[in-house]
Amino acid sequence: MPARTSWIPYALIAPSVVFLGALFLVPLVQTVWLSFSAGEGLSLDNYQRMAGDLNFSLAVKNTFLLTLVVVPLQVVLALGMATMVTKLDKGRDLVLWVLTIPLGISDLAAGLAWLALLQNTGYLNSALYALGVIQGPVGWLSQETPVALFFAIVLAELWRATAIVLVILIAGLQLIPKEFAEAAEIFGAKPWTRFTRITLPLLKPSLQSALILRTVLAFEVFAVVYALGGRNFPVLAGEAYVWQNDNQNYGVAAAYAVLIMAISLAATAVYLRVLRTRPEQLS
């Protein structure tokens, strides 16, 4: 038996390995190679040029700021929404369906939708003008209003990508037998205590997955930022795009890509370590 079955797992996993190898590993190696090659041989020129760029430190700062604000807010929002959705008796599927609609919209389309709302001649200004709150068009997304621009991007990102966290957390909540909460309730735990002492710890594996996914995606944020602010709000992926297309410098673009990957990997490693569930604590 063991001899016969030993190759089967490898055979079954082979197609996905080939697929990942061709479409992920090869471009990855190429990108890393590209980022270290300038002129002849290996060098750090591309990285020096990236780090020396006027927008670099701003892009790093903005990307981190956006991630640090958006991801925790999304997790808190999704936790609240997931708790409410799982408590629904009727219409739960409909509510969940409506809440996840933004997932079906591409990020660029989402960015453009929010642009239509927030630009000078957008719906927000029209509404405020009609209500007599403002006298004429107000710019929210310009270089002169960086705070408003930042909050506009945060808002659009919350709207666009909270649902993926929600879906993961709902799946996680459904895995927790309701007896745990009932037992806690019988033994005197109030709702908030039940949430912090029982639900959250048991939800940790799902929280970890959601956080890894959302954080990695947040470091890659691009289309929404580009649609709303252009280069008024530089982010890392945006800079990679500019170096690739506007400046036609693939080396520096590759350096940005490698930097984003390194940050994502580091964040993932942190989550895996900090939010790990010891095997003996699994239910």
Binding site: P177, P201, L202, S283
Partner: peptide, 11 residues
């Protein structure tokens, strides 16, 4: 209360 599947907290 003692539950049918114990409901002993795994964590």
């Amino acid at each position: 209360m003692v539950f049918q599947n114990y409901a002993v907290f795994p964590h």
